[in-house]
Structures are given as structure tokens and as C-alpha cells.
Simulated scan of single mutants.
Amino acid sequence: METTKLTLRPRSRISRLAHSMAKREKNSITQMFSDFILARQKAIESQPELGPLTKSLSGVVTLPENFDEKQFMSDILAEKHGDR
């Protein structure tokens, strides 16, 4: 497997945390980074792609900043099924 050099410059707290995690997991920071990137790529690839209609509707509705989705859905369901 071909490798290349990658230099990262994290904050010292992150660096200490990475070293600690690698030691605890008996792993290298390089391997932890590789595993993280591969897991993220897999997660991205497993997300379904938006269809053209959904893409075209993106940004059509603007909600107020204080919009409460849970309250809105609760109100809709209460109206549909009657208050219990």
C-alpha cells in the first residue's frame, strides 16, 4: 500500500488527546486518522442522494429563527387526531 506524508497541526489539547487515545487503543494516530476518514467516507456514501424535485425545492421555504418543529408537529397531530 502506497503511503504519503500528511502533516497536521492540531491544538495542543487535541494532540494530547490523540496521543492518549492511540496509546489506550494500542494504535497509531495515523491509523486512527485513516479509520476516521474511511468511516466518514462510508457514512457519506451510504446517504441517499436527493432527487431532482427535492433539490429544486431546497431553500424555497424560509422559517422564522424561533420556529419550534416539535411544537408545530404536535399541533398538527393534535388537530388531525383531536386533543387527547
Rank of each mutant, 00 (worst) to 15 (best):
E79C: 01
T4V: 14
L38F: 11
S28F: 04
F33Y: 10
L53M: 09
H19P: 01
D75K: 05
I44A: 08
L6A: 06
G51R: 06
T30V: 07
H81C: 11
L38I: 05
M1D: 11
T30H: 08
K80F: 10
E65P: 00
N27T: 15
L63E: 02
H81F: 15
A43E: 15
E69V: 11
G51V: 10
F36C: 13
S34D: 11
M21D: 03
G51M: 08
T4M: 14
L53H: 09
L57K: 14
T7W: 04
S58W: 01
L53N: 09
I29C: 05
Q41N: 12
R40I: 11
G59F: 01
D35V: 05
S12D: 14
G59M: 03
T3C: 00
A78Q: 11
R40Q: 15
K55E: 09
M1Y: 07
S34Q: 12
S12W: 02
F33E: 01
M32R: 09
Q71N: 08
T7R: 04
P64R: 14
M21T: 04
I44F: 04
S34P: 00
A18S: 10
E2T: 13
P10T: 09
A78H: 02
Q71L: 13
S20M: 02
E69R: 08
R24M: 03
L17F: 08
E25Q: 10
R84N: 09
P48I: 10
N27Y: 00
L50N: 05
S20P: 00
P64Y: 05
I29V: 15
S46W: 02
P48G: 11
T62K: 14
T62L: 14
L17R: 10
H81E: 12
S15W: 11
F33W: 07
K42T: 13
P64V: 09
N27Q: 11
T4F: 15
N27S: 14
R40H: 08
D35K: 11
I14M: 06
K26A: 07
G51P: 02
R11F: 02
Q31K: 14
L50M: 14
E2F: 12
R24F: 02
S20G: 04
E65F: 02
L17V: 01
E25S: 05
H81T: 12
M1V: 12
S15R: 15
E49S: 09
Q47M: 13
S28W: 02
K55A: 05
D68N: 14
S28R: 02
L77K: 15
T4E: 13
S56K: 11
P48Y: 06
F72V: 05
K55W: 00
H19R: 15
E69C: 00
Q41S: 07
L17A: 08
Q41G: 03
D35A: 12
R84E: 10
I14C: 03
L38A: 11
P48Q: 14
Q47W: 02
L63Q: 01
A18Y: 00
E65V: 04
R40L: 07
L50R: 12
I14N: 06
D75I: 00
L63T: 03
G82V: 08
T54H: 03
E45Y: 03
M1Q: 10
K55N: 05
I44V: 07
R24S: 06
G82H: 04
V60C: 01
Q41R: 13
